[in-house]
């Protein structure tokens, strides 16, 4: 049987889609408050740094960032095709590379906190 990378890509898409369906709107709401000049207490440096210093905080931030990136990358690949950009291999390479670099960058930054 031919091996396919579809289950892996689909798995991250499903996990990323579900996670971002649940948490992205409320996260945007939090930074919207920052943009409007009402920074929530949690986003003050000391509080957020303490949160990100804890293993649970690191894990949550990593899961949200990496899975949302992979979910968005997969959907962006399909969207490019739908908009008439038919160089699928090139598009797939770029979007998945961005998601991979973003995930690695998240690990690096979180490990420094």
């Amino acid at each position: 049987m031919a091996k396919s990378n579809k289950p892996i890509i689909w798995g991250t898409f499903a996990a990323g889609g579900t996670l971002s369906a649940f948490v992205t709107p409320v996260l945007i709401l939090l930074t919207l408050l920052v943009a409007l000049g009402h920074t929530p207490e949690m986003l003050a440096y000391a509080r957020l740094h303490a949160f990100a210093a804890h293993w649970f905080g690191k894990l949550s931030l990593f899961a949200v960032i990496s899975l949302s990136l992979w979910g968005a990358a997969h959907r962006l690949r399909i969207t490019c095709y739908d908009f008439g950009i038919r160089a699928d291999t090139l598009v797939a390479t770029i979007v998945y590379l961005v998601a991979a670099f973003g995930s690695v960058a998240a690990i690096v930054y979180l490990s420094r906190i």
Binding site: S20, L27, A52, L69, A72, A105, Y109, I113
Partner: peptide, 19 residues
Amino acid sequence: CIFIGAYTLLLLVGVMRLS
């Protein structure tokens, strides 16, 4: 996905600045 992807990259920048 364009907005969710862009926003996630913004979060990543936030984590970088936090570090």
